[in-house]
């Protein structure tokens, strides 16, 4: 074998060995199967619909990916979505100002993120526990604020949730914009490098002069802020902010991140991978609706896909050792 082919061979091997590849393959299989199984699947309208459905999970997952890459985890995102939506809706209702409503939703998200950051970096509470607490607190506050009854939230918020630009859902465009920003952040900037270094070996990063606490605080704050944006979009889409909004989202979000090849142990992960993961989750949801299968099966299948994708990875790594 000549040197060139062996090089190409090893490069191909390296690509095949990535979890993104397994997920991309599963994604392709689902696409082919659905194209054959349902004539409505491959229409512009349906695909844009999938994109819109994927957008909130994908956005929140982008920020979650940074958290997990830095060796943290944010379980509170689902509740923060709910609290932000409710806060935004109530502020808009009380003040009659659309701008303040949107500002309120984003600030509520950011405040939750900063709360998590402080619990972790100042009080040294394990992020799993800290965000588990915040998850419950944020959900409780949304219930208290609304008395359990949904609040109407239309106007500008509906544009975020249901608006279109050139026929493309605004939330999808927003998600793509965020993806580009996060990609550049992760791969080209000092902040991104600090995040990867902190997750790969926090002690070594600290000893190398990286401000590990500030890095950790930043990713949690960003995660909260993006969850706030997610709440705005979800509520806008329904034109109503229910206190239960976003319940269970943390699981879809973390699943998308893990499917995308991010290591829970920190230090590894890619933004394109996260997009693939989120897309797969949305596509599965769409497939079940189109095929008319009970949504209960959808829940089971989501779990199976996560286990399958990570298992392929684990078996391959196991063989390497």
């Amino acid at each position: 074998m000549s040197n060139g082919t062996s090089n190409a061979g090893s490069r191909l091997g390296a690509i095949l060995a990535r979890r993104e590849t397994s997920v991309a393959l599963i994604l392709l299989l689902v696409l082919i199967f659905m194209t054959l199984a349902n004539e409505f699947f491959l229409t512009q309208r349906n695909l844009l619909n999938v994109g819109r459905q994927a957008s909130v999970v994908a956005m929140v997952a982008l920020a979650q990916a940074l958290v997990i890459i830095s060796r943290g985890i944010d379980l509170s995102v689902g509740s923060v979505i709910g609290l932000s939506a409710v806060t935004g809706a109530l502020v808009a209702q009380e003040t009659g100002s659309q701008v303040l409503g949107i500002g309120g939703a984003l600030s509520a998200g950011l405040a939750c993120g900063i709360f998590n950051a402080v619990l972790y970096t100042r009080f040294h509470i394990n992020p799993f526990i800290a965000t588990l607490g915040t998850m419950s607190i944020a959900r409780g506050i949304s219930l208290l604020m609304t008395g359990g009854i949904p609040v109407s939230f239309s106007g500008w918020a509906s544009w975020f949730g249901a608006g279109r630009i050139w026929g493309i859902p605004a939330s999808l465009l927003l998600m793509l914009l965020l993806a580009v920003i996060f990609y550049v952040l992760a791969t080209r900037t000092r902040v991104g490098r600090n995040i990867y270094a902190t997750g790969d070996n926090p002690t070594a990063a600290r000893l190398a002069g990286i401000d590990v606490d500030r890095t950790r605080g930043l990713v949690f704050a960003v995660s909260g802020l993006v969850a706030g944006l997610g709440g705005l979009i979800l509520a806008g889409n329904l034109a109503s902010a229910g206190p239960d909004l976003g319940r269970g989202y943390e699981l879809d979000v973390i699943a998308a991140v893990i499917l995308g090849g991010t290591a829970l142990a920190g230090g590894r992960g890619s933004i394109p991978g996260v997009l693939l993961g989120a897309l797969l989750m949305a596509l599965l949801g769409n497939a079940f609706v189109l095929l008319g299968v009970s949504s209960h099966w959808q829940v089971v299948t989501k779990g199976l896909v996560i286990i399958l994708a990570v298992a392929i990875d684990g078996v391959r790594r196991g063989r390497e050792d």
């Binding site: 490098r193 270094a197 790969d200 070996n201 002690t203 070594a204 230090g267 590894r268």
Partner: peptide
């Protein structure tokens, strides 16, 4: 334990 970033390249 305290020196290398194991998942990073030599350069980084």
């Amino acid at each position: 334990k305290r020196g290398i970033l194991p998942s990073h390249s030599v350069e980084r």
